[in-house]
Design a protein around this nucleic acid. Structure first.
Length: 259
DNA sequence: ATGGTAGCCCTGCTA
């Protein structure tokens, strides 16, 4: 099974690039973030014609997450649901579905804006709720994969220059601890299983200042996988070509192969 | 030079 995650930064603007990606990437499951669409505007029929079932959790102007699957898609869930207090209530940031026996979760973690803001504090809370939500619905022995834009670079080698991020979000100890808490529950940063200690592998480059061509990127699009999924992992890659050309997203897809 | 670009419900906010 080949599974990918991609923050498309508006599916309306990016649909041609997403269709192109589906045409060459041979992916079975795709987690999308920042569709920026209402559910009504989500192009489910387009994906159906390309062979993919889909589920979308959207709100319109901002956020929005989806899962596409050509290997089955069942038991969809939208947001944290009853029993959880979402620190970003009203935002469409999580959708889940079971695809060929794997519980797939597509997440768009809040950006956090700046360290000294309420948005940052609620970003940390959102991570805590995600962990509680996982623990409430699953055990680490389940086949679970949470893919998405985590808006956190887990290690110093996940940013182009850690000194340039002094005082910034995405690299703070508290944000990394929030990711570590998910891992402590029983998940693994799958990309680093394939590329331990390899520098310069990013999934996001700011549109501004020519960051992509200057290799000023960050690895913030992650797949956290439970043990049984991690054991099936054979390969991973960033599709950097998707960041090039006409009207690219500022994120590239990250692709994972499971035996 | 506190910049730059791209997206949205586009003259302001979000990332």
């Amino acid at each position: 099974m080949r599974i990918a995650t991609w923050n498309v930064n508006s599916l309306k603007a990016r649909l041609p690039r997403v269709e192109e990606f589906l045409g060459y990437a041979d992916v079975d499951v795709v987690c999308l973030q920042e569709t920026k669409l209402s559910d009504k505007a989500f192009p489910a029929l387009t994906f159906q014609e390309l062979g993919y079932d889909s589920v979308h959790h959207g709100q319109g102007q901002w956020n929005g997450v989806a899962i596409l699957s050509r290997v089955g898609l069942s038991d969809p869930a939208f947001g944290f649901g009853d029993g959880f207090t979402d620190p970003y209530e009203g935002d469409a940031r999580l959708v889940a579905a079971t695809c060929d026996g794997v519980r797939v979760v597509s997440v768009y973690v809040p950006n956090g804006r700046a360290v000294d803001t309420d948005h940052y504090e609620r970003k940390l809370q959102w991570f805590a709720v995600l962990r509680d939500w996982m623990a409430a619905h699953h055990t680490p022995d389940d086949a679970v994969a949470i893919l998405g834009d985590y808006n956190v670079a887990p290690g110093d080698d996940d940013v182009w220059n850690i000194e340039a991020f002094a005082g910034s979000t995405h690299v703070t100890p508290n944000e990394r601890a929030a990711v570590d808490a998910l891992c402590a529950w029983g998940l693994t940063d799958a990309f680093r299983v394939v590329y331990p200690g390899v520098d310069g592998l990013y999934s996001y480059w700011d549109y501004r200042a020519g960051d992509f061509h200057q290799h000023r990127g960050m690895r913030i699009d992650l797949a956290l996988t439970s043990r049984s999924v991690t054991e099936r992992l054979t390969w991973a890659v960033v599709d950097r070509n998707a960041r090039k050309g006409t009207q690219p997203s500022d994120h590239a897809p990250v692709i994972f192969d499971l035996a």
